[in-house]
Design a protein around this nucleic acid. Structure first.
Lengths: 194, 194
DNA sequence: GTTTTTGTTGATTGACGAGTCAATAAACTT
DNA sequence: AAGTTTATTGACTCGTCAATCAACAAAAAC
């Protein structure tokens, strides 16, 4: 009963399942069978569509990064003025979508993956580059010659807050994370009301 | 030719080798044989002394945490006044010892380990708790009722900077990391010269 | 209506790795 | 000197898992 045009559907299901399983397991030690099972197919089919486990991981990572990018772009679209745009980026970074347990767990493991797999490192570099230039662009004019340092700090702070959320026991608390980041920002901008 | 009293020596060698190998591989996917080989013994002996790979990992993690704790304590011992003490903590966090490639790589993987292994989570919680209370204690009086938020931010910032160092391509750059953290601090304390 | 393309899986292969065991040897004890 | 404890390893077991294969099914193309 092979319905045609299954490929994109299956691939999407596998990507989603990969993220879920990595988040669940809290590590990259997930078997292809586990992923395939969660996606409702045989492990052979998973290999058929992706070729290898690593490709599945990378596809999952791309997906997470894409979602994040979309969220940021969406938030930026409705924000006017540099300060509002900065706030928008922060809020998007800790939005409900990116801040689910599984997603945070997946991120953590993608960081680890980036240590070994060049393509993962590349993807992560793109994300960091975009974030950095977004921050920097909006900070220039607001923070003067301190813009570069503030951007670096903000970027690191976001990652740090993200990391801590992923590790803590209770449910993720986006509100307090975003509060800390916003506080950092407003504190840094004090005295620079252009 | 069994010399007696080998146990502590071999355990220490294994712990060191574990950190090195995890750092090298950039993941927890390290075989006991690899570790044992680097430590100059058979894998059987490694199992003899530690019982399991997980125990080795935990011992390595304890060691890293111990070193970090010692470094902080040492730096605090010669610092007078809350502000100097805060700076001391920051400098210790990014000290040469804690900031070698392998160590940072190991940290990253310990974070991952903490997602799965309760004992690892416990150890990490102890580290975070100590750091937090150290920061908070010295921030009270300097930052007034903002102390709690600043402490949270500083803690996350440290982790974030650490994380980014671990991921970046070139050699770790402690100086710029500590500069960002110090900048955050001084910015937060502005206007609060008690 | 036969051939090709697409979807699908159970079974199998082949490698690798954690942990165990039996054996050997040197030191300490009594 | 006999017995015990500590050190040490090569060989082996047992499980797991990524990846492949052979085979079957249905739709599409010719």
């Amino acid at each position: 009963m092979p319905k045609l045009g299954m490929e994109p559907i299956r691939k999407a299901a596998l990507v989603k399942a990969t993220i879920t399983e990595i988040g669940r397991a809290g590590s990259l030690d997930v078997t292809v069978s586990q992923i395939a099972k969660r996606a409702g197919m045989s492990s052979a089919l998973a290999h058929h569509y992706f070729g290898s486990k690593e490709e599945m991981f990378l596809a999952a990572m791309r997906h997470v990064l894409t979602l994040y990018g979309a969220e940021v772009r969406g938030a930026l679209a409705v924000a006017e003025g540099p300060e509002a745009r900065l706030r928008a980026i922060l809020r998007a970074s800790f939005s409900a979508g990116n801040f689910r347990r599984e997603t945070v767990g997946a991120w953590l493991n993608f960081w680890v993956l980036a240590q070994t797999v060049p393509e993962a490192k590349r993807l992560l570099a793109i994300y960091q580059g975009r974030l950095q230039s977004n921050l920097l662009a909006n900070l220039r004019g607001l923070a003067g010659d301190r813009a570069a340092m503030v951007a670096t700090g903000l970027g690191a702070l976001i990652d740090g807050l993200y990391l801590r959320e992923g590790l803590k026991s209770g449910p993720p608390d986006a509100a307090s994370a975003v509060a800390v980041a916003l506080d950092y920002l407003s504190q840094q901008l004090e005295g620079f009301t252009a």
